[in-house]
Design a protein around this nucleic acid. Structure first.
Lengths: 148, 148
DNA sequence: TATAACTAGGACCATTTTAGTACTATTTAA
DNA sequence: TTAAATAGTACTAAAATGGTCCTAGTTATA
């Protein structure tokens, strides 16, 4: 139940970009600011472009900038970019067990848990991350609504 | 962002036990029912005992039973038993970066995200898992309350 | 038009983590 | 006394992860 280091790096890098999204940021520059090794920074940036979280500008004076405003980039989107879809379980039981039970009985409930977690991560954006600790607005997650 | 297989097994095994908690269940028996290899089942059961989710009875006719009612065993507790504390990030930036920024600025916000996710997983219990898909009651997670 | 400053996209390897197994000791009902 | 259980630890193989490097393509500008 831990995010990968690359995802962690991504949030740091994105935070820096989000604070000044008017100009583009190069991988080398980001490496200097964050202290993360340049090849690793590049790897993260490329993945974020692939997931359409960032937009890249090639050539001299090129670099990266956010694909949309920080308010519209959720933590869930960042995790998705680096680690793929948020799915806590593959299949909640071995195939053999599933056969015995004629279809895994708790798998449906796991889907609901996934949704709950996903919703929680969707509700936090890059804009929230770069603010001093305190949420910008009241958020309610009516869990039961996820089941409808 | 995925649970380990062992955690997955744990939920399956616990579901079986929860459905009939009046008698104890042996590791061999659980292996047969779930289709998971017996040594692996034992490993999972031992970890669950260590985390006080299960209680073991040693000796012949021994086995395992829940340490408390299914309603009081949260998914968060199960994850905690198998994988340790739910902590999405170690430190949101490299030490070097943290020094530059005089203390990582987004770490505090990550703590809040952790709480949000933890809260979501705490709100689902073993009792919910074994019910046919549909929540037993309305749950609201006022996210902002986490910040107080 | 040449060059330097950029990103794109793989491929690669070392390290760590995970899964799964095995072994020995201990406990207890019959 | 024996058989059926759990406790605890150690070990190995496989998979995932982190990190690096290389080559190709793009573009501003001198």
């Amino acid at each position: 139940m831990r995010l990968s280091k690359l995802t962690d790096y991504a949030t740091v890098i994105l935070s820096v970009i989000a604070k000044n999204n008017s100009c583009v940021h190069s991988a080398v520059g980001m490496a200097e600011v964050t202290g993360i090794a340049q090849p690793t920074v590049s790897k993260v940036l490329k993945l974020l472009v692939k997931a359409k979280v960032l937009i890249s500008v090639r050539g001299a004076k090129g670099g990266y900038r956010l694909a949309r405003s920080p308010e519209k980039i959720s933590v869930a989107a960042v995790i998705n970019a680096l680690e793929g879809p948020i799915a806590l379980t593959e299949c909640s039981a071995s195939h053999h067990a599933c056969e015995q039970a004629r279809g895994c009985e708790i798998q449906g409930n796991w889907d609901l848990i996934n949704k709950t977690v996903h919703n929680a991560l969707e509700s936090v954006t890059l804009a929230d991350l770069i603010l001093p600790v305190r949420p910008p607005r009241e958020i309610n997650i009516p869990v039961a609504s996820l089941y409808r």
